[in-house]
């Protein structure tokens, strides 16, 4: 029979990483004495864990699991791939729009050209990730 694809962690690996990063941010903010932001991030981490555990319960809906990044089987992963592919395409288009808008604004308002580096970097990074993902998918199929 097929093996269920749950990890031994109480939440999925991506959620564990996300929660760890948020908790580390909360601790860092606490050390810096920025208590409001620290408590805010702590609340976000608790909400994220709660959402993941809610999605992992036996009777949860597929859309609940996919939105919480708690995939149970191949169909959940297929749905997530379809969703993320749309997100990627939209991110690429928005990055091009952002780059053009910022280029126009920087030229018009005499802002430092360094302001353009962020959208250029974002666009380049997205293109590199896209190419790498395509290459990976082509080699695996």
């Amino acid at each position: 029979m097929s093996t269920p694809t749950r990890s031994r962690l109480p939440v999925s690996v991506p959620n564990a990483v996300l929660v760890t990063v948020v908790v580390a941010g909360a601790v860092a903010l606490g050390v810096l004495g920025r208590w409001f932001e620290a408590w805010l991030l702590a609340a976000v981490s608790v909400a994220a864990v709660g959402s993941a555990l809610h999605a992992r319960r036996p009777g949860s809906r597929d859309i609940t699991r996919v939105n919480a990044i708690e995939y149970r089987d191949e169909r959940d992963r297929s749905i997530a791939r379809a969703g993320f592919s749309v997100v990627g395409a939209v991110a690429l288009v928005l990055s091009v729009v952002e780059f053009v808008v910022i280029a126009v604004v920087v030229a018009a308002r005499d802002w430092p050209p360094a302001v353009q580096l962020v959208p250029i970097g974002q666009l380049l990074l997205l293109c590199v990730v896209w190419a790498a993902a395509n290459s990976y998918a082509a080699r695996r199929s």
Partner: peptide, 30 residues
């Protein structure tokens, strides 16, 4: 029994989802 969600079985039965070869074989064996 085959290690998937109830929604996946429902989607296969209603023709909304084509299972992978692995899952198709598991279902056939079952």
């Amino acid at each position: 029994a085959v290690g998937v969600s109830r929604q996946t079985i429902n989607a296969i039965e209603t023709g909304r989802y084509d299972p992978s070869l692995r899952l198709a074989v598991h279902l056939a064996r079952h």
